[in-house]
Nucleic acid binder design. Structure first.
Lengths: 208, 208
DNA sequence: AGGCTAAACGGACCGCAGTCCGCTTTCTAT
DNA sequence: ATAGAAAGCGGACTGCGGTCCGTTTAGCCT
């Protein structure tokens, strides 16, 4: 017997076959082109497959679903954004005081979310990505809130601060209620200051 | 000439023909049965039409789209809920102090949203209904915040407090992160107290 | 080189949302 | 009662997301 297929120890998921890798490239390129060129709604699975010169089944093999494909497109900019939060220049990146970082975080997130609005909507709640993106942001906000000396249920507080930055809320405000972006940003600043400052005045309206 | 068709003065939208009314009834009944019986995802337009004994086109004539149909189903419970906010017993209805009403509002909204989660998701952002529902809740929260002496951008503050009660956030928390509902409710209480109490300590962390 | 296997491929196929248009019913005015 | 017109109706049709399965191909082992 000869049982060793590439040291399965810690191999994680097996590597990708060369044709598969080539097709994933071609598909991402095709999808990107379609988005830039005709808008998100023109990105049908058939169109992407045809443009990449592969069969439809292949698209589904690489990216679970249409939402998965959109999530993959989003991945580039999302990763770049995370990097600039983790190691970019202040005040978004490390180096500024926590409150300034938090406010910069909010502004930045509002802007990126609005920029990729259609894509985010199309990506929906595509399991992995949505969860990863959310949990990164939530982790960061939890960290900053703790730095700021906030007590209480910090995980849920973080989620609550993040909720008004979700694309569905932002689009309601900008597209339907015609609220200018900088007003939304100022209002988030205010919200954050209110939440954080409560810990500077304990016993305000009931213990927590 | 004989031009008077039922006093168009203030007539609003013309009344419904009797067969149309009958069919709308039948369709709502069929849809409700399907939801109770097989779940929301079993409510296909063909199934509803067939069960009501009408053609598919008729479904679309009455309710713009699938989302519109779902919104119509939601309408019953939504209206009842609005009534209990406007004129039900305290603390949700009028009579209790504003803070108690606000906290009761949050708990009630969390529970109803979770109860009708699938339906709300299926109804999506179906123009009219979603907007009406949101704006009712927003109006109520704006009113209570004002009563509580909150200063600042109250409209957006209200939206920000409502955002964590949206179904997409609640389902993330309960279904994926396994957070128990009463913890979410307590966290919202805390959030509201923080936001409101900031006005009791002006100059907290920067003017607004 | 040659062959073996697992992975990848492609496109026919299915179900459902939404549209379209020729036919039928209701209502009203005579 | 009856005729005319507007509103309603129904189901065939289109387009898209997603699945399935017989065929092809890359990578490895001898």
């Amino acid at each position: 017997m000869s049982e060793h297929r590439s040291l399965p120890l810690l191999g994680g998921p097996p590597p990708e076959r060369s044709d598969a890798a080539r097709n994933r490239e071609a598909l991402l390129r095709a999808a990107t082109d379609l988005v830039d060129h005709c808008g998100v709604e023109a990105v049908t699975m058939d169109a992407v497959a045809a443009r990449a010169g592969v069969g439809k089944g292949t698209v589904y093999r690489r990216f679970e679903s249409r939402e998965g494909l959109m999530a993959a497109l989003l991945n580039h900019s999302e990763t770049a954004w995370q990097a600039s939060v983790l190691s970019g220049p202040p005040p978004l990146g490390p180096g500024a005081p926590p409150m300034e970082r938090l406010l910069a975080f909010g502004r930045s997130r509002i802007e990126t979310n609005l920029k990729h609005g259609d894509l985010i909507t199309a990506a929906g709640h595509s399991g992995a990505r949505a969860y990863a993106a959310m949990s990164f942001a939530a982790m960061h906000v939890r960290y900053l809130l703790t730095q700021l000396g906030v007590h209480g249920d910090v995980p849920i507080l973080a989620t609550s601060l993040l909720a008004p930055l979700e694309i569905v809320i932002l689009q309601q405000q900008t597209h339907i209620e015609q609220i200018p972006v900088d007003r939304i940003e100022r209002a988030w600043d205010d919200l954050v200051r209110r939440v954080v400052s409560a810990d500077a005045h304990p016993g305000a309206a009931g213990r927590r």
